[in-house]
């Protein structure tokens, strides 16, 4: 008989342990949500869509695979009582994914965007198209509402976040009666998706800009000042380049001149003063002059130095690309 009690005890212990593991989905909370998301938290595609954050209040890992998210629990009673096997259309069954194993005290954000094809964190409903004012988290067997976050209707029209004022802390007795304790949920002062709602972080950059510089004039002035500062810094650097280059060129020119003067002094026979290029130019000009027919001319040949405006860049061939054809 004692042996029977012993086995019974072990059986009950195993049963309870499995129940306690199973109960950890009860530690999940719909912790924070936002509906009118214009320039706040974005999904992996960069879109600003409504979102809800789930928080695992437990100190162990919870697998949320198979649980349902919805904004319409009308089919709940029928599904829970097994009157129908059909999962209500507005229920989003959280798919199997490694990321659905929520470590202790962790957060997961689901996008309420009616785009389930976008990935496991995108639901098949959006509160923007719903008449209800709540989001519910339902257990995987469909029999239990794990948490329900009712929000005020004006949340749809305001860029604010709503949720647990202290992460996932709720009054269990009041919740069983379908009520909330005072000060349990409400508008939050800061957007904290995937992190704690209790934060000392102030308002976001965008909010600050919207408040302090609604017309953007301040930012425009500061930005232009920074752009000018950056480019003026480069300008100064280039000026220094120019100065150094000019000095170096002048120095080397002076040295060359000095050298050529010395060479001329040494070689008195070479008193023409023209370099090889000039001699070649004169020779070519004389050849062309005497080798062709001419009218009466001055017979003076001069070398014109290039004007100050000459530049090898002033050539059509250096145009970057041809004009678009106007057909």
């Amino acid at each position: 008989m004692k042996l029977i009690y012993k086995y019974l005890f072990i059986f009950v212990a195993i049963l309870f342990s499995s129940v306690s593991f199973g109960q950890s989905v009860h530690d999940l909370r719909l912790n924070e949500m936002m509906i009118k998301n214009i320039d706040n938290f974005s999904d992996e595609y960069g879109r600003h869509v409504p979102w809800v954050e789930i928080f695992n209040t437990a100190y162990n890992t919870v697998n949320i695979t198979g649980c349902y998210l919805t904004d319409d629990t009308t089919g709940f009673a029928a599904f829970a009582s097994k009157k129908t096997d059909q999962i209500p259309a507005q229920w989003y069954r959280i798919p199997t994914d490694q990321k659905m194993y929520m470590p202790q005290r962790s957060y997961l954000v689901f996008y309420l965007d009616n785009s389930p094809l976008f990935g496991p964190f995108h639901t098949n409903f959006t509160p923007a198209e719903s008449n209800t004012h709540y989001i519910a988290l339902i257990s995987s067997n469909g029999k239990e509402i794990l948490d329900i976050l009712e929000y005020p209707a004006e949340l749809r029209d305001t860029m604010r976040v709503f949720g647990y004022l202290v992460d996932g802390v709720r009054n269990p007795e009041a919740f069983k009666k379908g009520k909330r304790a005072d000060g349990e949920i409400g508008y939050l002062t800061a957007f904290t998706p995937a992190s704690s709602n209790v934060t000392q972080v102030g308002i976001s950059k965008q909010e600050k800009l919207r408040r302090d510089d609604p017309y953007g004039i301040g930012m425009a002035i500061i930005s232009m000042a920074v752009v000018f500062t950056a480019l003026i810094t480069i300008f100064i650097m280039l000026k220094i380049f120019n100065y150094v280059t000019r000095r170096t060129t002048q120095k080397s020119k002076a040295q060359e001149e000095q050298k050529s003067v010395q060479e001329v002094a040494v070689d008195n026979n070479d008193n023409v003063g023209a370099n090889a290029e000039e001699i070649a130019a004169i020779g070519t000009a004389l050849h062309l002059h005497f080798g062709s027919m001419h009218d009466e001319e001055s017979e003076i040949i001069t070398i014109n130095m290039p004007s100050a405006h000459y530049s090898p860049w002033a050539q059509k061939g250096l145009s970057m690309k041809k004009n678009p054809k106007l057909k």
């Binding site: 953007g216 425009a220 232009m224 280039l238 120019n242």
Partner: peptide, 23 residues
């Protein structure tokens, strides 16, 4: 740009279009 550094300031002035459109 290196040979005529003052031209860089034109590049700065033209960015005003960005901030005018922002406003």
């Amino acid at each position: 740009l290196i040979s005529n550094p003052k031209l860089i300031l034109i590049g700065a002035a033209a960015q005003f279009g960005i901030f005018a459109a922002y406003i």
